[in-house]
Design a protein around this nucleic acid. Structure first.
Lengths: 200, 200
DNA sequence: ACCTGAACACCGTTCAAGT
DNA sequence: ACCTGAACACCGTTCAAGT
């Protein structure tokens, strides 16, 4: 039955092969990612479905990921990392305000495409999960905000958490045709609000 | 068992009494409201729990409310109405910008206390449910926005949907101690962003 | 060690049977 | 007509049994 052959065993020394367990883990992540990309709703991708798609038993998933949220975070971990690592790069290339704008532009794209990422960001129930992505992300935001404030580009009475919260709307499901233009405009409005009244 | 007596039958003509069904409906709404006020999470208030608290069978709930979301909306309908009806009143008393600020101040309070309302606003899956609260609410926002734009108080390149979306963050769960001060500050930031650059 | 899959707990919803 | 409560479908998670 659902025990698809994994292809030839390859004629390599055993030492070179990662354990079977690692392969299973990859299979799970791949299957889940594929399902998520195709799914309308994040919720529609069930653990049972992931197990089936990966060709493993239900229990196996939990050997690799303690909970559903852990699986989701594992999938989007790379996206979070990319997002976080972009902040300093942008700051090196652009003035703080423009760096922030470009960083947010990425969020717009991510929020649209990677619906699951939004789900984690918005609704991660477990504190353990929040603790994994929030600090690095808020740290990235803080870098952008601090640089902007040092440059007099961003009002001084807000902090990273304020800024992060203000862009919550980027994670909401938008069925609008012109979502991208609208999102840009909305980002612009909030950015204007973040500008010190002295400037402009 | 759970068949609490409803008190004396009152010596009134039968014509004056609403049908038993109406009483059941009220009991359901009351029980659900009470449970929701006490609950940490909206999800923790299950249909089974509501039925139990109201002293009725599970099926009875669905005779009165076709789905869980319908029940929730029925509960918060009065809040939505109040919110909506406040907009014109505020506009009659205050300049548009101040009216909007005060209207949002109400949202801050509601978003905090009535967690269920936020759940509906943010995550109403069914389009039928969205269709019930969105038009009136967006209409109220439109009144405020239009008045503000007419007065030159609000930038002209945004519409009611933009404004509504920008304040999405008001519905997020905030465990912060100083949430109210923070929410006010954040509202202020967005309001500043909504101000035309010509003014201020 | 790692995996399987039946089973559990739980929740929204339905429906045959009662009054 | 309206209500009851067992039952269904479904999903996250567990665990005894297999290799």
């Amino acid at each position: 039955m659902p025990h698809s052959s994994d292809g030839p065993e390859r004629g390599r020394p055993a030492s070179e092969l990662r354990s079977d367990s690692a392969r299973t883990r990859h299979r799970l992540l791949d299957s889940a990612r594929t399902l998520l990309d195709a799914a309308d709703t994040v919720d529609s991708v069930t653990m049972h479905a992931v197990a089936r798609a990966a060709g493993v038993g239900q229990g196996t998933i939990y050997r690799h990921f303690p909970s559903r949220e852990d699986l989701l975070l594992a999938i989007y971990h790379v996206d979070v990392e990319r997002l976080v690592s972009t902040a300093p790069r942008l700051l090196a290339e652009y003035p703080p305000r423009e760096a922030l704008r470009r960083w947010l532009e990425q969020l717009v794209a991510y929020g649209r495409v990677k619906r699951g990422l939004g789900q984690i960001v918005q609704a991660s129930t477990s504190n353990a999960i929040r603790a994994q992505w929030r600090p690095p992300v808020l740290n990235a935001v803080a870098q952008l905000v601090n640089a902007g404030q040092a440059a007099g580009d961003i009002r001084s009475d807000v902090d990273a958490e304020d800024v992060w919260q203000l862009f919550t709307f980027l994670w909401t499901h938008d069925t609008d045709q012109h979502w991208h233009a609208r999102a840009r405009r909305r980002v612009g409005v909030v950015l204007d609000g973040l500008t010190p009244t002295s400037v402009r």
